[in-house]
Computed example of a mutant assay.
Amino acid sequence: MLLQEKESGNLVEILDIEALFSPKETTVKGQYQVGEEEQDPESFEKRKLNFPSGESLPQCWIDTNYKSA
Rank of each mutant, 00 (worst) to 15 (best):
K6T: 06
P58K: 01
M1S: 10
I62S: 03
T26C: 10
E55K: 15
L15D: 03
G54K: 03
W61Q: 13
N50A: 15
N10D: 07
Q4A: 13
Y32L: 12
D40E: 11
Y66C: 10
Q4K: 15
Q31G: 03
K6M: 12
E25R: 13
Q39D: 10
E42F: 13
L15H: 07
Q31C: 15
N65K: 14
N10F: 15
N65A: 09
E36M: 01
R47F: 00
K67V: 01
E13G: 10
G54H: 06
Q33V: 10
L49D: 03
V28R: 01
A69Q: 12
Q39G: 04
Q4P: 07
T26G: 04
K6W: 04
E38P: 06
P23N: 12
K67F: 00
E18Q: 14
Q59D: 15
L11H: 10
F51M: 06
C60A: 12
E36T: 01
I14L: 01
P23A: 14
Y32H: 05
D16P: 00
E13S: 12
I62N: 03
G9E: 02
K46H: 01
P23L: 14
Y66A: 09
L2F: 07
S53C: 11
L11A: 07
M1H: 07
E5W: 07
L11E: 03
S53M: 03
L15V: 03
E42I: 11
E7A: 13
N65Q: 13
G54S: 04
W61H: 13
N50P: 00
A69H: 03
A19D: 09
E36Y: 00
K29I: 11
E37V: 00
A19K: 03
P52Q: 05
G9D: 02
N50W: 14
L11W: 09
F44M: 01
S22T: 02
K67R: 12
S43K: 12
Y32D: 07
T27G: 02
E55F: 10
I17M: 15
S53K: 06
K67E: 08
E38T: 10
K48T: 03
G54D: 02
N10T: 01
K29A: 14
K48A: 12
S22V: 00
D40P: 04
P58R: 01
D63M: 05
E42N: 13
